[in-house]
Design a protein around this nucleic acid. Sequence first.
DNA 1: TCAAACAGATAAACCGATTTAGTAAATCGG
DNA 2: CCGATTTACTAAATCGGTTTATCTGTTTGA
Lengths: 340, 340
Amino acid sequence: MVNVTMADVAEKAGVSKSTVSQYLSKRYEYMSVETRKKIEQAIKELDYRPNVLARSLKQKRSSTIGVIVANIMHSFSTEICRAIEDYYQEQGMNVILCNTDEDGDKEKSYIEMLQAKQVDGMILFPTGKNKSLYKKLTKQRIPILFVDRKVEGVHTDTVVANNADAVYQAVKHLADQGHRKIAILTAPLTISSRIDRVEGFKRAVQELGLDSSRDLTINCEIGQIRGRLQSLLSREDKPTAIIAGNDLVLMEILAYIKENRIRVPEELALLVFDNIPFAHLLSPTLTTISQPSAEMGRAAGRLLHERIKAEQPSDQQPPREMTYECTLIVRESSQGGIRP
Amino acid sequence: MVNVTMADVAEKAGVSKSTVSQYLSKRYEYMSVETRKKIEQAIKELDYRPNVLARSLKQKRSSTIGVIVANIMHSFSTEICRAIEDYYQEQGMNVILCNTDEDGDKEKSYIEMLQAKQVDGMILFPTGKNKSLYKKLTKQRIPILFVDRKVEGVHTDTVVANNADAVYQAVKHLADQGHRKIAILTAPLTISSRIDRVEGFKRAVQELGLDSSRDLTINCEIGQIRGRLQSLLSREDKPTAIIAGNDLVLMEILAYIKENRIRVPEELALLVFDNIPFAHLLSPTLTTISQPSAEMGRAAGRLLHERIKAEQPSDQQPPREMTYECTLIVRESSQGGIRP
DNA sequence: TCAAACAGATAAACCGATTTAGTAAATCGG
DNA sequence: CCGATTTACTAAATCGGTTTATCTGTTTGA
């Protein structure tokens, strides 16, 4: 038999489909032990496995959620995805993974695909380029949750790191080491996490009375970082410390540093936002700002799940925004570099 | 209207469901331009989106494939997954991602879940612990494909790297640099890729007439690597070069080297199997064996897809095994280390 | 003793599409 | 002008489950 259905089981057990269905959903209340045994037996003999598509169709839920990530190659994203996946596995649910490369069109087509697939909810690293679509989703009561980035004007659950404060602490740490001229390099300020990082930077510079020249804040495409670094570091009054906005920016900076044989931290202190797997193995070891990715991923999974479960009764709680604190892990690259 | 169905569209357009269905599948043959326009209009006005679950139920295919990966945190795995995802996006299909942590039970439960979800096929990094289940799947004509690892006795499409030859070339390279005592460290030999790497190592040692002491081949759990390294390197006749079996092993080795201030490549040459994102940024830069992960992922996607499409006509081609060559990227860590 | 309650099970409707078999009207060929 | 074909469209069955209403008997309660 190619495909065993519930009808086959029912026939073999000598009962009706309805009873088999009751058995499967473990509603044994009005069922004789005898019947139960017969069904059990029939299922085993036929190696029956229910078709969840049919179930989902009727129940109007698919036990599947969609995760739309900007770039899975980013280790922070991978860690979040993994945590989400772990959470939903425990809950007996599945995760469809989608990758947008920060492309708004791809994001849109994925969202529509996931909707067509009747996912119970979506977790997204929003590109921010489809605001009206996000809003439409919330209006249609499709549970969505943003992670890593907030989107202004869209009211839904959000899980982010305290980017601003983390950078503030980082700048403070550098200032404590005697640095007065600190630069920050990030990718373009298209998403809230980057904006917040720069904001924390500016606030710290302000409050701590550091050099607040405009050109110590650089936001550009990855490909242009080398060039910007070049001009930044060839100036007379060049910065003594640099904060890399994420792991990809860091790679560029490290390459530049290696090429130009810049000594870290003696000539230039270095600090990165993001957990770098090799941070403790580089020479010098790298000071990092670590985001609690596993906790954030789990929280995202849990929060969305609560929304999904609460969807039936119309107890509409206001959107929650969870902010996770980061940890500054001080290593060699940011310590004892400059002579006051 | 909460959920627009095809019936709603049909009513609005003043035609039958059947005609709408024809329209959706672009079978315009026997349809007046007028009708077509009316349907178009109705769909737009209602913002109708077909329910793919219903479609899948009837058509007995879900346009979804399952990917079961041993450990998504492994960068090689992530790269493969990304390539698979890219491929299926282009094909208008979705990917459900599952993570097993090399746990056979998890793998089994995922396989069953995916089957229940009626996936059109599965790509797996097999743990190797569910042979009978793999066989059952192939017997049931459910298209499955193995990637990274072969499984003896299970006849299905497989995409792997030429692990043996890659290591052979690596050993040759080290021998060319004058090394006679080379060690290889890998995780336990539970999967074919690791077994093949060791085999390539042994063959090279044999053919090139290098030191073939048994204890230069170490296979142990990640947690034990430090200890094994300790005893390996405290011997009088210690090896002058080490090959790390994968990125996780490398991390342990690098940590050990850093702690014990071993100079690379002067005291010890180092070479890793796997593409390490920081390879060119470490000091010294690291010699690596790079697997063409993107090509392998795409190939896996394409091959499985061909199987899926060919499933309807009963043209059963024999299983294909695609082997991809790796590239030895020589950097500082393996060059000019020893004095003959 | 008779209606109400209950235990155990089922028939049939339903979820939202696809697909098959068929129908009515228009067109065609001889 | 009539039967055959073609065109344009539809009713109804189907996919494989869930769910609701219902249907027998058997207990129970007053």
